[in-house]
Design a protein around this nucleic acid. Sequence first.
DNA 1: GCCATTTCGTCAGGGCTATTTACAAATTAG
DNA 2: CTAATTTGTAAATAGCCCTGACGAAATGGC
Lengths: 403, 403
Amino acid sequence: MTTTRRLHTQQDMRRRNLAAVLYAVADGGPASRARVADRIGLTRTAVSTLVDDLLAAGLLAEAGLGHSGAPGRPGTVLALSDRGPCGLGAEIGVDHLAVCAVDLRGRVRARAAVDSANRGSAPEPVLARLAALVTRVHDEVTAAGLHPAGLRVAVPGLVSRDRAHVVQAPNLGWRDVDLTTGPLAAHAPLTADNEANLGALAELWIGDPVCRTGDVLHISAEIGIGSAILTDGRLLRGNRGFAGELGHVPVRRRGENCACGGRGCLEQYAGEAALLRAVGLDPARAVADHPGPGARSAYLAGRAEHGDPDVLRALRGAGTDLGIALTGATHLLDPHALVLGGALAVLAPWLLPSLTAELTRRLGTAPPLVVSRLGADGPLLGAAHAVTRTVLDDPLRTGTAPG
Amino acid sequence: MTTTRRLHTQQDMRRRNLAAVLYAVADGGPASRARVADRIGLTRTAVSTLVDDLLAAGLLAEAGLGHSGAPGRPGTVLALSDRGPCGLGAEIGVDHLAVCAVDLRGRVRARAAVDSANRGSAPEPVLARLAALVTRVHDEVTAAGLHPAGLRVAVPGLVSRDRAHVVQAPNLGWRDVDLTTGPLAAHAPLTADNEANLGALAELWIGDPVCRTGDVLHISAEIGIGSAILTDGRLLRGNRGFAGELGHVPVRRRGENCACGGRGCLEQYAGEAALLRAVGLDPARAVADHPGPGARSAYLAGRAEHGDPDVLRALRGAGTDLGIALTGATHLLDPHALVLGGALAVLAPWLLPSLTAELTRRLGTAPPLVVSRLGADGPLLGAAHAVTRTVLDDPLRTGTAPG
DNA sequence: GCCATTTCGTCAGGGCTATTTACAAATTAG
DNA sequence: CTAATTTGTAAATAGCCCTGACGAAATGGC
């Protein structure tokens, strides 16, 4: 009952201002203390003491004097450290594994990936293979003077609220897998999240600027059709963390029965399996023939580029059904933009005509449709950036656990 | 580009802690300084100085010594003042006007209402009639020692981002009406909001406790079918403030054409007009025959109670279509609960069977369906409470404008 | 080259906020 | 009546940011 208000102690104030300094440098680029003070509205004096702490913690670094040509003493340029903490991101795909490391400046400093038939496999060998990749990347960035502050794992499924367990990953066949007990968590504190969520966050942080200016619905099809709702710079997760299941929004009143228990779900008409079936392929065979992230989409895109009429018709139909589902979502959320990520970004050229037609027909003025430029890399980059974000948000780690 | 972080000054800290004290008393009930300190995690000393300011501002009042029976010196009980600021709420319905005043304790101290055929009327006479009600309520509470801190107006339509204009109210026939220039704003700073939003906020603040514990979708049909998304104790408004238009979510791929430009919209099957037509009535005639808030719903409920087969069938169908739309919304938002407010609350007994059947069939486990106990009073009470909330949130008015 | 001007970073002093410590006041338990 | 407990306040302290002032380091005009 008691709505305990987050109360603000002086430490909270300090923490926020430390974060404000870091974000001023992260978003606005390297700058002197005086310029940072102008950006965030504090005095030079206050910024100086904040910067002292951040230099001591190894989060900021001085990069010499800045020559601007303007009169006045030049300031010492402050930049985010490229030898301080970094974030490790990992991705468990249906048929591949990937790991990368990102420094505070947002640069990818190391990455590794392998094909891996994870569908239907027991978790242990998959996690062991992934742990080997993590070790490789970890050693590489450690040699470069970085120290990983955490490891976030992108999972194609539902993740528990404490971010430690995979509750359910239908496309892997996993249920209730604890990620923290295995060898994965050996190098850095581990947290997990849904890949669609991380893909959307990547878009928010390093993707199209339109995502930073309002509420956005980020649609990201891989095997299923997921989505993520970004509102006010944050992710809407829902009660159990299951929000964004666009693939199971009904688009036909009496349609195909779906594995989710419903019928007429969007996924039955615009999902990868539906597309493959519509062009006369067996989904299971196709996955075996074209393994790897985005391989089926690339295959379909290839056929579409050659004008294959079956593929073109299938994509046209998928665009229309996607348009129906997104009409409903737009009425509910009134988003600032709709972003197509993952496989949808690759297939966008052939989906967009019927999709935009359906949206404008039903909505009059549809929100702008943006195609992600991160594509299949979104979830992996989002995972790594999620870690560096926790460092920037609470620079001196006065908080307890990484968010 | 520069994501300007809200920086925290000492004044911000103070403001938050002042608000924390007020909410500790508002949510947890009257209590001594020491007990408040325990509730919000500050020291007794700090709470004492905060309370001093709040007493001086007339927001808190000392209510004698508390006798608990436990050993130790009894504390002086602090309660929210019932003679300090209050909130004025007003409602512009299609066929009625209402105003009420709520004190900081949440009690309704005065109210007034009249039937008024507003549909199709020019704004000026309507606003003049409403202003007369406001004056009556204002004088009444002023005589009781309260001073109104603001007036919030609930409008059945879309409100501009600055909360001063009605952008569009189709059921009134209004477009671009400035509310602040008329006689309405004479007594207190005026802001407007959508009635569905305010109904949902009322549910959050004074309604079912389930709304306070997670994300909630609040459905409130009056003439149209609106909804509001509560996430993390706040309202999701969307890009233009149009979020929550549940009535225009498609439930039929090729259905009736709707005034919104779409087709197969939920409102065509579960809206008030559709229900009236389904039982053989002309919607316009029915509104004339049964004016007033909730009158058509009450009429339909009356016939349903007598077992009228046409009405029962119509409500069954509406429940099913509502279930389809809410299935999609649940997949997108994963809400903690679905709340039925407004006319839906009255008709709930006959809607719920087919609605829950559709939801459980499609979702497996549906979120709990809660029937609002505020009913038609929601928007009006929400409007008044919205004002008192701005007082509690920033007790000493260091901020500029009321939110 | 020299000096005025401008900007940068830091130091000293002060104000605001909450905490610590201490203490008087008011109640219950025995 | 005394011991124990709890309440509210006062004084001193620590943390954080601001104001004002100052030396340092650049540019521009002479």
